[in-house]
């Protein structure tokens, strides 16, 4: 399935709208005092790459997974996570490689009808590529580059604080020739109450 530009525009525009809805002073302070770091969510997702471009003329995307943690921040929520994905070579002269995207993110969750929550945010991080190449020296086996992108998630509570969700995300890897990837993922997350001593440290 090819994901076309209008789809990105949609994700972008939804995020821009969120930024435009800048919090008022009182609103921000209200959250900072009552909600920031109150809970933390951990989740696991299975991901698949959905777009096709020049990059895919050389590599076939396999499947991957993503682990993340998310906490309410002074406004919105912050995320930290890692996304792991394997790309198989299409040509024997070109090695396959494994990617690890360590990211930090921020976003805002909006409640929708039917208990559905809609999260939109952005991420930045280190996109590491580990090449399966025996002919290069050890220092060149791994290369890392800045990765940044957007994410959007719909989630639904299935049991107490356990939620299932579907997400779309877009990553631009700022290599000399930019790598642009979009993913769809499904997964689950669980929300815990933050122990007081951890909240105390984080505040």
């Amino acid at each position: 399935m090819n994901i076309k530009k209008p789809f990105f525009l949609f994700i972008c525009s939804s995020n821009i709208i969120l930024f435009v809805l800048t919090p008022g002073k009182n609103e921000l302070h209200a959250q900072s005092k009552t909600q920031a770091f109150d809970s933390f969510k951990i989740g696991l997702k299975f991901i698949t790459n959905t777009n096709r471009n020049t990059f895919h003329n050389y590599w076939n995307p396999e499947k991957g997974f993503e682990c993340f943690a998310e906490m309410p921040f002074y406004y919105g929520s912050v995320q930290a996570g890692v996304h792991v994905f394997l790309y198989n070579d299409k040509d024997n002269d070109i090695p396959e490689f494994l990617t690890r995207y360590f990211y930090l993110g921020w976003g805002k969750e909006l409640p929708l009808p039917l208990k559905i929550n809609w999260f939109n945010g952005f991420r930045v991080g280190s996109y590491q590529m580990i090449f399966d190449d025996d002919e290069i020296n050890e220092t060149q086996i791994m290369e890392s580059e800045l990765g940044a992108g957007l994410s959007s998630r719909l989630s639904y509570p299935v049991y107490k604080k356990l939620m299932v969700g579907i997400s779309v995300s877009y990553i631009a890897v700022f290599t000399y020739k930019k790598v642009e990837l979009t993913f769809i993922s499904v997964g689950a997350d669980y929300t815990f109450t933050t122990p007081k001593w951890i909240k105390d440290i984080l505040e």
Binding site: I94, E145, T175, Y176, K177, V179
Partner: peptide
């Protein structure tokens, strides 16, 4: 820190460039 513009996986293709 890191500056963007590395070749990334394209170093194995005709789009290869130098590390920065």
């Amino acid at each position: 820190g890191n500056e963007t513009g590395d070749p990334g996986p394209y170093r194995y293709t005709e789009f290869k460039s130098k590390n920065v």
